[in-house]
């Protein structure tokens, strides 16, 4: 029997019909190079975000005010590392190694979520980050469980399951502080004021201005647009803020007739400035990662040498 290799057109048609039928694409399946590149970009950015995202909260571990809150915060940051790890592993199925991903991050070629370039200044920031930043991330991740790439989708399912406590712990911190002393209430409102807009920016630019979105939506890497997800997020979150007496820092916020909210203008100049590296902590976050990686080099090397010696 003679087997004829299928043409690229045929392969693309098969690929797209799988996508349309909601059949997941697996690592060894044929896929268009643009699909692969789009995934590598998005998944590595997602993985880096989890790992860099350990830092703002890490800033408060040693100052957590109770043993309970310290355990929770440590466990949460550990989960973020774990999620970065799941995502690197899923991305590695596309033929890029973790070391290459890290190198791209260090050379500034790969991005991570800009929100982590803002500083964590008081204990209520641990609340605001869990509630708003994780809340925004979860909105996006729930949607990504249905992404078309199998390993990415499986990683997201696992991550969503584990993250369910993250947002709750953040909101609990905010709530406790709003129930507490005047100082605590001020810290909570201050944290919301600083994290609200960066959290809204996490969903990315307006749909009309999002360079990677079209193909990603067509091939179902992304399942919902930036604006759709942002709307979902504010509609969930604003009532939560009001319930505990926090005021969302948006003077132009409108409650529409259908009980949904419309937010005021987002300062996209600030967003692009932070993306380009000019946020309050960009340099600090990246340098921390590079330093830890460099300081760990001799540890990785001795582990390799020792494994070789013992052939284990």
């Amino acid at each position: 029997m003679e087997i004829v290799a299928p043409s690229t057109e045929q392969l693309l048609a098969d690929f797209e019909s799988k996508i349309n039928a909601e059949i997941k694409i697996e690592p060894r399946d044929w896929m268009p190079e643009e699909y692969r590149q789009n995934l590598i970009r998005q998944m590595s950015q997602h993985a880096h975000s989890e790992v860099i995202g350990m830092q703002p909260e890490g800033n408060w571990i040693t100052r957590a005010p109770s043993l309970r809150s310290k355990k929770i915060l440590l466990a949460k940051i550990q989960d973020e590392g774990g999620h970065g790890l799941y995502l690197y592993s899923a991305a590695e199925t596309l033929g890029v190694s973790r070391e290459q991903f890290i190198q791209a991050l260090h050379e500034g070629k790969a991005k991570y979520a800009s929100v982590f370039n803002y500083p964590a200044l008081n204990w209520a920031d641990m609340g605001a980050i869990g509630w708003l930043v994780d809340g925004a991330a979860i909105t996006n991740q729930v949607s990504l469980q249905r992404t078309s790439y199998g390993p990415y989708s499986r990683a997201m399912v696992k991550i969503c399951k584990e993250e369910s406590f993250h947002q709750r712990q953040g909101y609990e911190i905010m709530w406790r502080m709003m129930e507490g002393t005047k100082d605590q209430q001020q810290m909570a409102q201050d944290a919301l004021n600083r994290w609200w807009w960066p959290a809204l920016m996490m969903f990315g630019p307006d749909d009309s201005d999002s360079p990677h979105s079209t193909l990603a939506m067509k091939w179902k890497i992304k399942r919902e647009s930036n604006d759709q997800l942002r709307e979902k997020f504010i509609n969930k979150t604003i009532p939560q803020a009001e319930l505990i007496g926090l005021k969302v820092p948006d003077q132009n916020l409108q409650l529409l007739e259908d009980e949904t909210y419309k937010h005021g203008d987002i300062n996209w100049d600030e967003f692009w400035a932070v993306v380009k590296g000019n946020g309050p902590c960009n340099q600090q976050r990246l340098e921390h990662h590079i330093r830890a990686h460099k300081e760990g080099a001799w540890v990785r090397e001795t582990a390799i040498a020792s494994a070789k010696k013992h052939n284990i």
């Binding site: 790992v51 310290k70 300081e295 990785r300």
Partner: peptide, 20 residues
Amino acid sequence: SEYSSHGPFLEEDLANTNVA
């Protein structure tokens, strides 16, 4: 816990946190 996010590689960071 001071060492969180300072580990030589990601797996070790998680392991260290488990001990903490």
